[in-house]
Design a protein around this nucleic acid. Structure first.
Length: 895
RNA sequence: GGGCGCGUAGCUCAGCGGUAGAGCAUCGCCUUCACACGGCGGGGGUCACAGGUUCAAUCCCUGUCGCGCCCACCA
């Protein structure tokens, strides 16, 4: 017996435990069924479930549950990511609270501490995913730093190194001074900063007293200037090219060079060149073979180690300049500007807003720094990935994202993969005493290689750096399946079917999985990339802690149930749209769950139990035929929507069918029949109602698995926990569907019209009135006769039948097809109001008739429009004119 | 600077060649024996603007305005 109200908070966790206990989420590599694979985007092991997870995981779970029901051998591969920087930060904060640092305890102890922390807190996200209802194959859970995946990382690194696709290089990198590590281009984001442009006068070294003025936003890097560049076409400076200037503060002589990089339109047209601290300047420096002294260290403090200081009266005092050593870059900026002003080198200061690169995690301005790092030749690996999308081996949904993918991949830069962190995959490279590098999967192999190289066993030092977290993530689609071992899982589940993610990680992750998958597996990692939007708050604002508009999905689940949240997400998840989610939306979702629950209660009260012997082909009644045909339509709609990743359409189709068709009309129509529970009619209605309830539960299982599974079990559609693997419903034919539809549509229109009329005339529901048909055909009368009770109940009719005699005074009239519906309401309605109502109807119909007639009188339209459209309009005109005639007749009768 | 997307009912959005739809909100009526987390009904839109293509444009094309995002760029 179903309780009066549904309590998801009590039932959902137990339901989930039941599925898990019975292995309902398990993939079955041993079975012959066609696989369907989704690889979870591994959440950070540090993480807790946020709304973004709720969206992406709900979408994935809906898909995997749908395909599982379709009989596919579904694998949703679970796991978490070690998330290098994020995790290291968390544990460093922990250490700080204990009054120590990672440097103080050392690398080994620190790593032990991270593992310990991971063991204690790393399970949070997975238990939260369970609460959401995610049907992940938990026994297969992996972690990017577990043994197997680490093997895969080393194998890939060594292989790419031997192929020349991974190499070391000394060039500028994006340096994060807070983490004191290199980061990749993708981890840099521009932020708008209000600052200044300083115009600095660099005097020529020829003693002529002339000077050249450069403009800069970074005066503190001037210590590392090695040239001033002007455009070769710039007449203003043509005579200065080849001359030297004295660099203030250091007293160094540096050349004025001509380089097209210098833009005459920008600044003063003369630009200082600091090759070690600016990406463009670095290229200029290479072209002109300039020195590249670094004047900032790894903490972004001034260092004078690589430059020499000279004394030049009024321009450079080594004693003063030496005080800058070790100074923070922003303090140095202020100090230097003040000194340049004092020396009258500063000739102008212009307020300026510029885009300054910041570390996306650290939030501090990044610093281009000249260091040796490991790089991956992404441009080479990108080629097959680009081709795979071009040829449609992998497609994006929505397809427009392919442009984004191409734009980035076709102009991809070398990927800096080394990080100066401790938590992560340590780079498998060892160095001999002379710096020779040995890249091997194990230390033993490296030592062996070194012994051969040096002719004797030689002590090696391992590279201190770890790999970018995304390096191991890139291998996820095959490393989780056991690669480099050739496992049955790898053979069966690679390539995956769908990758579900947000557009923000197309570059970070999708592109790199494509590159690595194609290179190492020889095939794309997934056939379809489904890109969903971002979750925003109800007003469309991005959620952020600082705005205080972050919603906690777990709080929503506690309040409304996981089903409510999941249904709401499905309903809002349209293509290319962000999902605007708030408590009100989820509350609305709960309304649907409640409606379903109550409909089921009604079914239960009326003994609507599943009858395995019943098939839609046996239906004889218009009502059951109509319902079954509508259910078949809903199956077609829901299936097509899910196939097309239209979660919004899928949810809407189910919503409409359950709420409007099943509850609002069918169950109401069923009540009269059910009043005689032993009749053959009641039996068929119960059979069909239960049959369709079974369809509803199956259609909704992917979106709202908990309540559907509960009802499935309660009604005995199958054993407990069996809905999750019940077959997805297939469309079916219903005998006499067209006639049944025509009949029910007529009844629905009749009841709707009468209800509207009564409401408009302010007739209270407590007052019943006859509903009589005038000019009705025999078929219509027969039809009406079959629905006497429903009409009297739903249209508040005291009697229903043909009108005998004239239309009584004070009656309201309605036109439906050929018949005029007469509702005697003497004394209850205002005749003027009724006349006004009829005139309004007439005016609306008249307007329609006019515009249709106008169209039909257009020779071009008749000649050129599609014949069926012309025919449609002809019929429309005839219908409208007939209706006008009947409305006129009705008006005449009350005149 | 380059690219992408969006401007449709008060709000959130569907529709994307044949004369506008949903949910929420709003208003009116109803505690009718599944459901007030409910039922019934109503009102509300020159589909951003201007041109063009077409027999026909919210839908296709061009431009304008407004909004959002991505990429590039510390003169």
């Amino acid at each position: 017996m179903l309780s009066k109200s549904h309590s998801p908070a009590e039932t959902e966790p137990a339901q989930y435990a039941g599925w898990e206990r019975e292995g309902a989420f398990a993939a079955h590599p041993e079975r012959n069924a066609a696989p369907f694979t989704i690889m979870i985007p591994p959440p950070n092991v540090t993480g807790t479930l946020h709304v973004g997870h709720a969206l992406t995981m709900t979408v994935q779970d809906t898909l995997i549950r749908y395909r599982r029901m379709q009989g596919r051998d579904a694998l949703w591969q679970p796991g978490t990511d070690h998330a290098g920087i994020a995790t290291q930060m968390v544990v460093e904060r922990l250490l700080a609270s204990e009054g120590t640092t990672r440097q103080a305890i050392g690398r080994e102890a620190f790593l032990e501490r991270v593992w310990q922390w991971k063991g204690e807190s790393g399970g949070a996200i997975t238990s939260q995913l369970r609460r959401l209802g995610a049907s992940l194959d938990w026994p297969r859970e992996r972690f990017t730093m577990d043994e197997g995946l680490s093997d895969a990382v080393r194998r890939v690194f060594v292989t790419l190194y031997r192929e020349g696709l991974i190499y070391r290089d000394r060039r500028l990198v994006n340096w994060d001074p807070k983490f004191q590590s290199a980061i990749s281009d993708l981890e840099v984001e521009s932020r708008e900063i209000r600052g200044s442009i300083w115009h600095l006068r660099y005097p020529l070294a020829d003693g002529s007293g002339r000077s050249i003025t450069v403009a800069t936003t970074r005066p503190e890097t001037m210590l590392g200037d090695t040239a001033v560049a002007v455009n070769p076409e710039d007449a203003r400076y043509a005579d200065l090219v080849g001359q030297e200037v004295i660099l203030p503060l250091t007293g160094r002589h540096i050349p004025i060079i001509a380089d097209a990089y210098s833009d005459p339109e920008k600044g003063t047209g003369a630009v200082k060149i600091t090759p070690a601290h600016d990406f463009n300047d670095f290229e200029v420096g290479r072209r002109h073979n300039l020195d590249m002294p670094s004047v900032l260290d790894r903490e972004a403090k001034i260092t004078l180690a690589e430059i020499t200081l000279h004394t030049v009266d009024g321009l450079a005092d080594p004693d003063w300049t030496a005080t800058l050593d070790g100074m923070d870059r922003f303090d140095a900026r202020k100090t230097i500007v003040a000194e340049l002003e004092r020396l009258e080198i500063l000739v102008d200061t212009v307020a300026h807003t510029n885009q300054v690169p910041h570390g996306d995690r650290s939030g501090v301005p990044i610093e281009p720094l000249l260091t040796v790092q490991w790089y991956c030749n992404a441009a080479e690996l990108a080629k097959p990935a680009i081709a795979a999308v071009e040829t449609g081996k992998t497609t994006f949904v929505p397809q427009q994202w392919e442009n984004t993918f191409f734009a980035w991949m076709c102009d991809i830069q070398p990927w800096c993969i080394s990080r100066q962190l401790w938590w992560g995959h340590r780079i498998p490279a060892w160095y001999g005493p002379d710096g020779t590098v040995f890249v091997e999967e194990t230390e033993t192999e490296a030592e062996a290689a070194a012994a051969v190289h040096y002719g004797a066993p030689t002590a090696l030092t391992r590279d201190d750096d770890v790999l970018d977290t995304w390096f191991s993530s890139a291998l996820w689609p095959f490393s989780t399946l056991g690669w480099p071992e050739q496992t049955p899982e790898l053979a069966k589940y690679y390539p995956g079917d769908v990758l579900v993610t947000g557009f923000d990680i197309i570059f970070f992750w999708v592109a790199r999985m494509m590159m690595m998958g194609l290179h190492f597996m020889g095939d794309v990692p997934f056939r379809t990339v489904y890109i969903h939007g971002l979750v925003r708050d109800e007003r469309g604002q991005k959620m952020s802690k600082s705005k205080g508009n972050v919603i906690d999905p777990l709080a929503l689940i506690d309040q409304f149930g996981a089903d409510s949240l999941r249904f709401t997400i499905n309903r809002l998840c349209g293509p290319g749209r962000d999902v605007k989610l708030g408590a009100a939306a989820v509350e609305n979702g709960r309304g649907f769950i409640t409606k379903l629950w109550n409909a089921a209660r009604f079914c239960e009260m009326n003994a609507m139990r599943p009858d395995p012997g019943f098939t839609p082909a046996q239906a004889t009644l218009p009502l059951t035929r109509w319902l079954l045909a509508a259910a078949a339509d809903a199956i077609v709609e829901a299936t097509a929507a899910l196939d097309a990743f239209r979660f919004d359409d899928y949810a809407a189709a189910c919503y409409r069918f359950v709420w409007n068709t099943y509850c609002d009309w069918f169950l109401e129509f069923a009540k009269p029949a059910l009043a005689s529970p032993d009749s053959a009619e009641a039996l068929e209605v119960r059979q069909a109602a239960a049959h369709v309830l079974g369809i509803i539960l199956r259609l909704l299982q992917p979106a709202i698995p908990y309540v559907t599974e509960e009802l499935w079990g309660e009604f005995g559609f199958g054993p407990a926990n069996s809905l999750i693997t019940a077959p997805w419903p297939e469309a079916f034919a219903v005998p006499g569907a067209a006639e049944a539809r025509a009949e029910l549509d007529w009844v629905v229109r009749l009841i709707g019209e009468v209800r509207a009329l009564r409401a408009e005339m302010n007739v209270p529901p407590s007052v019943k009135a006859p509903v009589l048909l005038r000019d009705a055909t025999a078929a219509t009368l027969a039809r009406g006769g079959r629905w006497l009770e429903a009409i009297s109940r739903m249209a508040r009719a005291s009697e229903f039948g043909p009108l005998v005699g004239d239309v009584p005074r004070g009656a309201a009239q309605l036109v439906i097809d050929e018949a005029t519906i007469v509702i005697p309401l003497a004394g209850l309605i205002d005749l003027d109001a009724e006349r006004a109502r009829l005139l309004k109807d007439r005016a609306r119909t008249e307007k329609d008739a006019e515009s249709t007639a106008r169209k039909l009188s257009n020779a071009d339209f008749v000649a050129r429009a599609k014949p069926e459209v012309v025919e449609e309009n002809r019929e429309r005109l005839v219908t409208a004119q007939a209706e006008i005639a009947r409305l006129d007749a009705a008006l005449a009768r009350i005149a």
